[in-house]
Structure formats: C-alpha cells, structure tokens
Nucleic acid binder design. Structure first.
Length: 526
RNA sequence: GCCCCCAUCGUCUAGAGGACUAGGAUACCACCCUUUCAAGGUGGAGACAGGGGUUCGAAUCCCCUUGGGGGCACCA
C-alpha cells in the first residue's frame, strides 16, 4: 500500500540549524498559519501559554495568522468556565487571535465539537482506503487485554482483534448495531520516519505503534484524528506543540499519508519542568522560598492575581526555551516579534524559575510610568481592604516603585498611609544599640522639631539630620524610631517622603502614641 | 517493561571544530552607596555528566554508558 512507504515526503534531513523556509522552498511565499489548540478541561497553564506565545510570535514575525481552536472532544473532562479563562488569559498576555472563537474566520467553526461531520467523513475515507477499521471490542475486553499483556510482560496496548475480523462476523456485528470505534490500521512492519524542524528525522518501528482509536463510540474524534483533519482543513503551515506529542507524531504522519495530505512543518517545544527539575511543572509540586511549603503557581490567572505584569510574564515565557543571543533577555513585545526565529528554539527542557520571573517583574515595574503603576496598583490595594484611587496613589509611587517585586507587594508598603496603624511595641521602637530612655528622649526631640518645621521633604530632612547631630546620635538611631512610630513597620519607604505625605497631624499623633509606649518601657527599665 | 526526546555554572542560557583562560543573566557571597528595605555600582565563587573514537585540534561531530524527561486511554 502506498502509505507503507513511510519515508516519503521528506527530501532531506534538516538538522538542528536548518533554515526555516528552505526545507519547503516551494512554499516560501505561502502564508504562515499557526494555531494554539487548548482543550477546555482546565484553566490556562503557563506551559500552554508558552506554546500559545511561540505560535503567536511566529505568526506576528511572519505576518501570518494566529488561530485559536478549541479541542473540546472530551465531554467527560469538560470544565465549563475554562474556556473563558483561557481566552481571558491569552488576551491578558496580549496574545490576540486572528481566527477562532469571537473572532470567527473562513475556516470555522473553531470548536471541534461543531466539526463532527468532518471527522466522520475522513474516518470513512480512511476505512475506504484500507487505512482504518471498525473495532467492536468493549471497554471491558480492552481492559482485560491490557491486563493480560501486562502479565506477559508486553507493552500495554490493543491486540488488534477486530482488525482481522472475518467479514461475516463484521457484518453480523453491524447488523446488530453493536457500538464501534474506528481504529488506525498501523503497518505491522517497517518504520515510520517523521521530521521535526529542530530534531531532524525521528524513526519509529511500526511494530511498536498502536492501532489507536480515531473515532470514539460516542461519535467524537480523538485528538489524533481531529488534529490532523483540522490542521489540514485550516491550512495550518506550522504545528508548534509540546514535546510530549512526539510519541504520537508517527501516528499523525500515518494519517496524513493515508489521506495523501501534505504535512505542515512540525516543531516540538521543550517541556517546562518543575523547579525541582523532577517532572513537568505542576501544581502538586511544592516550593519553599523561605521555608514555607506551598503549591506551585501554574495557572496564568494565578500569576495575574499574584501581581505579575502581563508584559513580564510574556517576556519570561518567551525566553523559556528561546534565546536570541545569550546577552539580551529583556524584550519588548515588538523586539521579541522581530527577533523570534524557529531555529533559536531549544530542544532541552527548561526549569521554570520563579526567582527569575520575580526579578523580571521588578524590572518591568520599575519601567512603568508612575501613573500607570498607580493605576495597576489600585485593585491590589482594594483587595487588601484599602479604598484608594490611582490619584491617591500617584504621589506615593516614587517612594515604592523600585521596591516592588509584584503589584501584590503594594499594600505592605503603603497600607499605613490609608489606614490607622497599631501602636508599635517598645521592642520594635527601640533600635539596636539603644535603650528605651534614650529612644524616648530622641523621639521627644523629634516630635518637637516636626511640630514646627516647615512641612516639606527638604526641610524635614535638614532639621532631623541637624537634630541627630545635636543629640549625638547616628542618623539611623534617630530615624528608625520615627519610622517605626509613624509607619508601624521596621521596613518602610524612605522616611522624609513618608512623613511629608503622611501629613504633620497624623505623624505627630502616631509619635505621641509611641511616646506613651516608650515612657512605660523607660520606667520599667529603671 | 518497551519506545522516543534531552544533556554547558543551582537555574535560564551564549557557543555552528581553532577567536574558550567557556561569555551573559538570575540566585548566592563580599564591599561601596545609604535613614530601614530596595534599587544601583564594584568584585567573588560557580559548568562543558563519564568513557571511547574522528581530527593537527572537540563544549561543538560519531558511538557507548550514565543521568533526566516524556509517552504507551473510546484524555488532550
């Protein structure tokens, strides 16, 4: 049979550094069409987002088309709100699609559940061409077979029972209306050689391949059939998908060849690994940044809620498995689009580094216009119970901008501006190498200065520095009690700006409360 | 178990046989700056998994070993 010659279709091995277009020279002018095809079985995972991102980057780089296709062929695992999350997360990252749900397009519908007639048609076509067959085995029998094979030390799989069903038996089962699936008729000998842009040729012994189910008994296709049919019908030029699909790649190739369809260029993307380096990134794994045991963040929405900027996540994900030069790693969207090349995608799996993402997020936060930072901080302040507007925040931005790692850090740095503080205890108020009486004396003096100083940052700083000298204290010894008294924190934004924006009245009021605490402590120490 | 993929500092990576005393970033450490914390500056420690080939010459090409990962559903 023609498709037993599995090596056809490839003129030469491209190898690791093959030119992107050269291999399919005839198609150099052909439009690039790529797709991201998630299944609505859960929220968008950062691994999925990275796949989407690479596809999007390639589409934008080439002036091609980015398609969103929903692979909703598993009715059992369907999660109702996952589709909304996937679309919202993609848009949050800036990965707008040209064709797909909402957008529409000439090759729709873009939900596989609405394309069943196509899968049925090509399943029949495959049967007619002798490349597939109906299988009437029950799930129970299949389970039995698997168990049996396991016991005999064989790889789990189907025993091809129905492939060799006598014709009269087949007719009888059909007449009885026995439920059936359609299976791929994999050649029993020879090899299937597939081509990956980055890895070159990969050969599989047909003997090791399985007669996978193409069409389920509920009439829905499996991934294997649906992906091939849709990629062909939607005229996909490049398939970029996760590494884990390499195993079923030969099955897909067999379907393409049986249907005599030309294959797109395949690029398998490296896996994203858990920080432990053990296995795919998943929620189950735990990380402990400071001894704390917690769940990994894996969903795009979680990063958004944790105060990461979309541009930072975008940049980080873009450099996970793709490197432009080894020198540059901060890329604007435009730069990434301009510089993205398929050849520069790595094949080795990459560990997801939360530390590096956090650093990068800080870089992007520092680069934000103050007005913009203020605007983005508002929801995080509100979530912490602080009712503020961007205008309230704006004057305070210079105090915190270079300190924030995430937007969620905002409240911890700024809450005392917007709500009263708990009066700090003496042990927090008294700096190292100081005692309560001396701290009390210093803070009293500071109160007097602050009560009459002209209320601007420069004057406050000048007078307090002068005071420190008069008291024979180091700057920190005077400033720290003031900081703690007015902010309730040991760690807070720069003092003079803080005092200025807090206002004289509130600053003095908080200092007075701290003085009471210190008075008591001073008495007790004597 | 079988099949497939992968292998440079802890991590992300540069490296296309000679430009490698292996570069950058992050994380870490020290110092500087400094009112705390950051940010910034300077410096430091830190890698070609192992073994065979090929070659005048190997991080780079080939083979083996080891290690890691993925897959083996009427899931995607």
């Amino acid at each position: 049979m023609f498709w037993y010659n599995s090596v056809n279709g490839f003129s030469h091995s491209a190898g690791k550094r093959a030119p992107t277009f050269g291999r399919r020279g005839v198609h150099m002018a052909e439009e690039v069409r790529v797709r991201f095809a998630p299944s609505p079985t859960g929220y968008l995972h950062v691994g999925g987002a990275r796949t989407a991102l690479f596809n999007w980057l390639w589409a934008r780089h080439t002036g091609g088309t980015f398609i969103l296709r929903i692979e909703d062929t598993d009715r059992k695992r369907y999660v109702p709100d996952s589709l909304d999350d996937i679309m919202a997360s993609l848009r949050w990252l800036g990965l707008e699609w040209d064709e797909g749900p909402d957008a529409g397009g000439p090759y729709g519908p873009y939900f596989q559940s609405q394309r069943l007639e196509h899968y049925h048609r090509y399943a029949e076509e495959l049967i007619a061409r002798g490349a597939a067959y109906r299988c009437y085995c029950t799930p129970e029998r299949l389970a039995q077979v698997r168990e049996e094979r396991r016991r005999r030390g064989l790889p789990p799989g189907y025993d091809r029972h129905c492939r060799y069903l006598p014709e009269e038996e087949r007719a009888r089962l059909e007449a009885e209306g026995t439920p059936s699936v359609v299976r791929l008729k994999v050649p029993e000998t020879g090899q299937t050689v597939v081509h990956d842009l980055l890895r070159g040729e990969i050969a599989f012994d047909n003997q090791k391949l399985e007669d996978v189910v193409l069409l389920k008994s509920d009439g829905y296709p499996t991934y294997h059939l649906a992906v091939v049919v849709d990629d062909h019908l939607m005229r996909i030029s490049h398939v970029m998908r996760a590494d884990e699909w390499i195993s079923s790649f030969p099955l897909h190739a067999l379907i393409y060849r049986a249907l005599e369809w030309e294959m797109p260029v395949f690029v398998h993307l490296p896996m994203i690994l858990d920080p432990s380096g053990k296995g795919k990134l998943s929620k189950r794994k735990q990380r402990r940044p400071d001894g704390q045991v917690e769940e990994n963040m894996t969903m795009v929405r979680e990063f958004r809620e944790a105060g990461y900027l979309p541009e930072a996540l975008f940049n980080f994900l873009a450099t996970l498995g793709w490197a432009y030069s080894g020198e540059q790693e901060i890329f604007s969207v435009e730069e990434a689009v301009a510089k993205f090349e398929l050849e520069d995608i790595r094949t080795a799996p990459a560990v997801f580094s939360y530390e590096k993402l956090e650093w990068m997020n800080g870089v992007y936060i520092r680069a934000l216009a103050p007005e913009e930072l203020a605007r983005r901080l508002v929801p995080f302040m509100e979530r912490a119970g602080l009712r503020v507007t961007a205008d309230d925040l704006l004057p305070l931005i210079p105090l915190v901008q270079e300190r924030l790692k995430t937007l969620a850090d905002g409240p911890a740095y700024l809450d005392f501006f917007f709500q009263d503080i708990e009066t700090p205890s003496a042990d927090v108020l008294v700096p190292k190498k100081m005692d309560a009486p001396r701290t009390l004396e210093a803070l009293r003096a500071a109160r007097e200065v602050l009560a009459e100083v002209e209320w601007n940052e420069e004057a406050i700083e000048a007078r307090l520095r002068q005071l420190a000298g008069e008291l024979g204290l180091k700057a920190g010894q005077l400033f720290q009690p003031i900081r703690v008294a007015t902010t309730g924190k040991r760690v807070a934004p720069p003092l003079f700006g803080t005092l200025y924006h807090l206002g004289r009245e509130r600053a003095l009021e908080r200092i007075d409360r701290a003085l009471q605490v210190l008075e008591q402590a001073a008495v007790q120490e004597q």
